[in-house]
Design a protein around this nucleic acid. Sequence first.
DNA 1: TTTATTTGACCACC
DNA 2: GGTGGTCAAATAAA
Length: 346
Amino acid sequence: MLSNQPETLLATCDEIISIFSRVRERLIVSQGQMMSFGGAGIQEWLRTSGAAASLPPATSAAAATTTPREPMDLVSAQAMLGGDRSKFQEYLESAKMKGMLVEQPPQSSSSLDFMFRGGRDVGEVQTVINALDSIRTSPPQRHQRRRKDEGSKVVTTVPAPQMGNLDLPPEDGYTWRKYGQKEILGTKYPRSYYRCTHQKFYECPAKKQVQRLDDDPYMFEVTYRGTHTCHMSSTAPSAPAPLPEHTLPPPTAAVHHPHLSTSLANTTNWLSMHILQGVSAAGTNSSMAAGSSGGAGPSASRFPDCQLPVADMADAMFNSGSSSSTSMDLIFSSMDEKWDSEVKKA
DNA sequence: TTTATTTGACCACC
DNA sequence: GGTGGTCAAATAAA
């Protein structure tokens, strides 16, 4: 649509540049602060720099099932755990001091005697317990192959896709990277092993095993293990495609962690909001914004024909996932076509 | 050139 | 020693 409005497109690009410049400045200013958060990085920075306050309510069904958020951020906590155990312990101590964590009576069945105060879902509590457990146990040595994951696992059966590559398991909202395949004794079909695509960058331990059923080749048995700690699951945020609730691993599925399942959406929305704020701010001292007034919002009034174009661009740029076609291609393909046709005419 | 997949080998567990 | 889970080099694909 923007291809018919080159001036608007130019203005939009300028706005994007302006906003990103401001984001960059904030990143530089906050660099030292980010470093102090160990593994939490930008997640923690976003949270503490006021971004969280700007976050819209979580949009996923999963988030809707949880209680209102308190400042406790287990995602950051887990990230800290990955980067610095002592920091994570400090974090938990801090949480206790703030009354967000309370010690449980000795008869607690949990391996560690902590529990969230009021209204916490089991997944989060379990996450803390797991984290604390891992503090108590010595970390595996480098290059040592770890024992089979004894953590929780959930086995679910899903139908094969009706179209496309029937050998692939259906989408579950996350991006996975295959790291192995094995013939399993007593089964007709091999078992495939997947880990989260973001395992390295986010130390995301989530894994899944996929095996075709012997008696029904059009069904897959999918076993999930581990907790998604990645904030950048490329397909989950905007298209959660959640598993049936009863099939989700209690502490492992994103559905139990609103910050996980919606984090990118939130971040993108946050960015979009700031972009819109930037548009609004720019409009006060820029002739570009002439005609902007009132209405549902600055962008809505400025772009009557295309709703929230800047936000859409941001969504397209940051929310594209592992699609084979790039987001920029998506954005500019129509422009390219128009450009090419006009070049040919000339 | 980068990223993902394949596959044989290695290793922990039973 | 057998089995399942993971690693990592080789290979393929984008």
